[in-house]
């Protein structure tokens, strides 16, 4: 009886105190239950987990594919936009060149017209100067003439006596007669 108890107890008795070691008692270390639990866990958990992970992978793939498509669309649009940009740039260049030549032409035209205006003005100026000169000369001539007349009149009034008067008149008559004869 004691032996039986002892042998039973020794099953559960391990070398206590002192050192590390392995417990080989299958019942106490419980590997059977653990393996059952692990097995069940793996058996059921695997399906659930792989479903979950597959779904996730699908989702990621779908997202990647979507974004690829979006990227391609965006690239296409970019290319289109670039083509349009190139076209617009060319047009702009053309317009710019045209505009430059137009401006040049306008400039030349303007310069030419200004030159003609300038010449006209020059002419006007010269004419005006000429006219003014003419006028001044006339005035001076008139003044000189008047003064000469006045001088002559004064001389006449101051030193004219009868004899001289008669002589002068006769001389003038003679002169007029001569002039008449000449005519």
């Amino acid at each position: 009886m004691k032996n039986i108890t002892d042998s039973f107890l020794s099953l559960g008795y391990w070398p206590s105190a002192g050192s590390f070691g392995f417990n080989t008692d299958i019942l106490a270390t419980n590997p059977i239950n653990l393996s059952v639990v692990l097995g069940v866990l793996i058996f059921f958990g695997k399906g659930v987990l792989s479903d979950l992970l597959d779904n996730r992978k699908e989702r990621i793939l779908k997202t990647i594919r979507n974004s690829e498509e979006l990227r391609e669309g965006a690239i296409e649009q970019l290319e289109k936009a670039q083509v349009r940009l190139r076209k617009v740039e060319m047009e702009a260049d053309r317009f710019r060149v045209n505009g430059y030549s137009e401006i040049e032409r306008e400039k030349l035209n303007l310069i030419n017209s200004i030159y003609t205006t300038l010449e006209q003005l020059e002419n006007y100026k010269n004419e005006t100067i000429h006219f003014e000169q003419q006028r001044v000369i006339n005035q001076v001539r008139q003044r000189v003439f008047q003064q000469a007349l006045q001088g002559a009149l004064g001389t006449l009034n101051s030193c004219l006596n009868n004899e001289l008067h008669l002589r002068t008149i006769s001389a003038n008559i003679g002169m007029f007669g001569a002039m008449k004869e000449i005519k």
């Binding site: 206590s16 105190a17 002192g18 050192s19 392995f22 417990n23 270390t29 419980n30 590997p31």
Partner: peptide
């Protein structure tokens, strides 16, 4: 984990 397989002092 079957921890109890490893024996400590």
């Amino acid at each position: 984990l079957p921890w109890k397989i490893i024996q400590l002092p």
